[in-house]
Design a protein around this nucleic acid. Sequence first.
DNA 1: GGGAGGATGGAT
DNA 2: TCCATCCTCCCA
Length: 190
Amino acid sequence: MNHPDTNQSAPDALPSDFFTRPTLTVARELIGKQFIFHDESRWQALEINEVEAYDGMNDKACHAHVGRTKRSEVMFLPGGIWYVYLCYGIHWLANLVTGPEDYPAAVLIRGAGRFDGPGKLTKAVGMTGKINRSPVSPDSGFYVADAPAVPKSHIQRTPRIGIDYAGPVWAKKPYRFVLSRPKKNRIKSP
DNA sequence: GGGAGGATGGAT
DNA sequence: TCCATCCTCCCA
């Protein structure tokens, strides 16, 4: 028995074999899962509501499309670790490495909880490049916990954001997944 | 050793 | 639409 404030246990983490599956499958299933981080001596949860898949060396928007570099080599590792890099010199972006070893792929977390935007999310939870290559587990302070599956009808697929440089074919791939629950019927005021 | 460009976000 | 700001990559 854990007191919620003083001796709170960490929610169960998704196992690493959740992440070693194909990137698009992982991206789709991450919608609705809980992004867990440690803050002020307790574990906090945010519902993941927007992600993007970056899938292998053929994907011109994927950082690994040019092969192994100092930045991209983390994507060649087995799924289940963090890939955190600095974007535009200002924003840290949080990615979950996916797929088997030697297949470079990752899922960018673009939104969770009330935080809208990949740079804002990392800033809000205090995530930086120090987390790069760390396991997606309570040990690193940042991980993902299970949650009931979101029905397909509540997930919107669109092209990815900010990757026009990847050319029309890859820029148009519907690799972005957004949670879009139907609006509840509002109770009208009398 | 230098220069260009980028998976953003906030102000204009 | 502009631009802050800096790491990585590529080309000398």
